[in-house]
Design a protein around this nucleic acid. Sequence first.
DNA 1: CGGTGAGCTTGAGTACACTCCAGCTCAAGC
DNA 2: GCTTGAGCTGGAGTGTACTCAAGCTCACCG
Lengths: 143, 143
Amino acid sequence: MTEITPELSIGQVAERTGLSVYTLRFYEREGILPHPVPRGHGGRRVYREDDVEWLQICICFRAAGMPLPAIRHYTELVRAGSGNEQERLALLLGHRERVAQQLAEVTRCLDLINHKIGIYEDHLARGTAAELWTGGEREPVSG
Amino acid sequence: MTEITPELSIGQVAERTGLSVYTLRFYEREGILPHPVPRGHGGRRVYREDDVEWLQICICFRAAGMPLPAIRHYTELVRAGSGNEQERLALLLGHRERVAQQLAEVTRCLDLINHKIGIYEDHLARGTAAELWTGGEREPVSG
DNA sequence: CGGTGAGCTTGAGTACACTCCAGCTCAAGC
DNA sequence: GCTTGAGCTGGAGTGTACTCAAGCTCACCG
């Protein structure tokens, strides 16, 4: 199914994920990967495409504000194998709620920024910029 | 226009904004407020509703991942008065881009979580949970 | 066979954003 | 008049998530 390249060095994983090699080693120490990365010649880490995919999920979780301990917790559940799917589901549901909240917050912020940008563009266009602080600047909040 | 309460203590501002008094003092030190907070009897900070509004904007910016130095920069432009509206606009436009990116990322993450939740709910409903890791777990990434 | 480059480990250092402590001042209540 | 509570200052401490340093091993290249 897959093309080739079953094995990846830490440098290649860094390149693919955008994480630094430092961070990859750090994540391994932190138990963020569902299994210890096997070592090849000279003790070098040997990653596989699976690991890159997993890391991309983790990156996504991180981007949504999931702290490393929570990711580790999820990882541990997966590592423990089947039998705890309820728990995994609960964890995901909880996280979904937090992400949805964050999404709402960020959206609200974007609205605010757009509103402010509109005011600045408007006033700059007609040269009434001097009144921005006492007039327009406060508008987004109070109204 | 406003009801009453033209003056607020740091404790009241903390209550209204959800920030701690520590954070409020910290933000002042960091130059996050557009003017030094005046002091009343016994050197106590005297805030006004304006400040609460400004802080709420800052909280919004923070929630969208704007670092404190960037907020300070914006604050400084506002503090400097009129004449730098182009710069403020540029700053806002730049920040909007970052926020939009973050929004896309968080949305993508929410999709991923929803996808995973769907898989777990599905499999739990029909008792095929044992195959999740080798089957469903990787699906959200590879497909 | 010496240098370069990628990787290894342990452990320390950094950046950011708070968070708290010690020791102080007031004002009000009992 | 003493305690309590809210606030003050300067500076130290904390938690999170990296990030880097020192000193090492290999494999490869000229």
